[in-house]
Design a protein around this nucleic acid. Structure first.
Lengths: 349, 349
DNA sequence: CGTTAAATTGGAAACGTTTCCAATTTGCGG
DNA sequence: CCGCAAATTGGAAACGTTTCCAATTTAACG
């Protein structure tokens, strides 16, 4: 049954183009894609016919034949978190540039969801994946991932690998960042510093703790002053903990707090106790959020480029997809300390 | 060439399952999908074979046959903006629940990109789309969109429509929100109020301005006191404008400021001028961001549920996809005023 | 002009499904 | 046990591409 009326929505296929151009479908395909081995006459006629019919190839069908979908998946635990959102955005930008579409999935740190999404990605034959697993623990999902054959790039996580070939990954140097921040505070004279960060379950937290304690060790300061407080990433929770912390006899004179929620909780706790920043309490934010930049006083912060993370991840993935020379398989991005108004030497107590 | 070695990554196809189960491919398909018209024996054998081979159907191939991809597109102008990120996240959650994958695209308000993405979505035969265009102006992209035949849901925009059938859309009642906030300030005694919001180019801005002026009109207050300041969404810019505004002879005694950046600019300007909040200046935030909640004093804010927007949009789209009864085609979500500490009667000047 | 190599072309076979259709089997009532 | 309807089954035709292969045309060269 040939298309009859304009109202029929069914779109022009390559066969229609072939008919109109008076050539074979094979020639149309060659003319439109390769451009190689096709005479000027055919090229012209095919172009005209395609134009006339408004032909757009069905990429779905092409995928079936070429075994490549032009789509990559991206799995994060919390899309609404500006941290991830910026990374995803940057990666999407780079991938789109390369003609790829990005499929997002929110895992909410739920391993079951992670597995389900990985399965969905595999079933849809996605060309590759960007993933930021909710935990470093060895999840069945990541074995399946490896089994799939599609290249995978890990975002700021340490996924256990079997042989001596680590996963391609984009990492942020949280350890060095935390070390710098801590050293800075110690240099100002602080001896009791609290680090408020979520889970040691994941690489960023672990690295930060390592850097934090390393700074104490190398400055030869009593390590008892290094207070590591593991947090859930909720504002109320952080506020409660921070309150308890600041009410102690020997309260910390400085706080290093992650992200937006925990930082916010710490700031509120300080306010509730009438502690002024930086006179009574120094504060460093981990992650340069709007909140840190805009707060009064402006909060000194550890900053790394989320755009770079996303872009680097996309780049790494593209490299794998093209299979060109492998290049290097990991990127380690630097963390800077941007000095603002929230740190000062501790007042003698 | 049959698969020979385990190392060959090529996956089991339906034909392999058929061979192992000793039935035809048609039966396998029926057994695995419909389940209807299939004998117990075949069902058992097929299930066993599929299990044994680790068969997973190629959804790409299925799409070709069924003319449905199980994927929907989502186009926003700024994924990194928490406003959009939360909406996208909520929509993704609902869609995944329904077994659909979501493809995201960042348009950066660039009409060319919007068109390109729409074309890409069409070529990939996506089942539907969620879009938040960068402007309400009638863009060629939206005509193509309509032409595609796939259902489209608009996020908080007014896209011109031709006949009397408006686009399905999820809208937020910014007008009523702005009206409530303004009325509240007028009730406190304010007579000169500034509204800092970006572009009247898009529905939210337009609606806010309408609600703002409506509140002045209905309270019978001199409309000259309603100062609408159109803003770019940049902190520095907002700060400069706010400074100029607050240095006027008859400076506003209250400010309604959008989002994070503009609000931040306004707050900084107030601080620079030594105006204390709320004694010298009342402030209302449009959008309940972390900044508003955490600032000292905490900022009274207009709040609406981004999750609801995303979920409603997904729901509307699913409804269309299922073609069930059409239901209603637009949702209007409420805006609340959450009272905090940043508003007070103006001091006599 | 004749011969051979190179370039172009048409036709058909994939890719992995679903679904139609005809053929076969099963079930049931008499 | 027969006949007929219903249920099940196998085979093949799509879906819209790309790509292989053989056949044809064009080009090149002596």
């Amino acid at each position: 049954m040939k298309p009859r009326m304009a109202e029929i929505v069914s779109r022009a296929t390559i066969r229609d183009v072939a008919r109109v151009a008076g050539v074979s479908v094979g020639s149309v395909s060659r003319a439109l894609n390769g451009g190689k081995n096709v005479s000027a006459r055919v090229a012209r006629d095919v172009a005209a016919a395609a134009e006339k019919l408004g032909y757009q190839p069905d990429l779905q069908a092409r995928s079936l034949r070429t075994r490549t979908t032009g789509m990559v998946g991206c799995l994060v635990s919390d899309l609404a978190n500006p941290l991830y959102a910026s990374i995803v955005q940057a990666a999407e930008a780079r991938l789109r540039e390369a003609g790829l579409l990005m499929i997002v999935g929110n895992t909410a740190n739920d391993p079951a969801r992670e597995r389900a999404m990985v399965a969905a990605f595999r079933s849809r034959r996605l060309d590759g994946m960007l993933v930021a697993p909710g935990s470093d623990e060895n999840d069945r999902a990541w074995r399946e991932l490896a089994a799939g054959g599609a290249p995978v790039v890990i975002l700021d996580r340490d996924i256990p690998h079997e042989e001596d070939t680590p996963w391609p990954a984009v990492l942020v140097d949280h350890r060095e960042g935390a070390r710098t921040a801590t050293r800075y505070l110690i240099g100002l004279g602080h001896r009791r510093i609290a680090l408020l960060t979520p889970g040691a379950r994941m690489r960023p937290g672990r690295e930060r703790i390592a850097g934090f304690t390393a700074a104490f060790a190398e400055a030869d300061v009593d390590p008892a002053g290094a207070l590591v407080c593991l947090q859930e990433s909720s504002m109320d929770f952080a506020q409660g903990d921070a309150l308890a912390l600041l009410r102690r006899d020997q309260r910390p004179t400085a706080i290093i707090a992650l992200g937006t929620r925990i930082l916010a909780g710490a700031l509120r706790a300080a306010r509730d106790l009438g502690l002024s920043i930086p006179a009574d309490l120094s504060v460093i934010a981990v992650g340069d959020t709007d909140l840190a930049a805009v707060h009064s006083p402006a909060i000194t912060a550890l900053r790394w480029s989320l755009e770079d993370v996303g872009r680097a991840a996309a780049e790494l993935l593209l490299q794998r997809l093209r299979g060109t020379g492998e290049g290097q398989s990991r990127a380690l991005l630097p963390v800077d300390l941007v000095l603002r108004e929230s740190c000062a030497p501790p007042t003698a107590t």
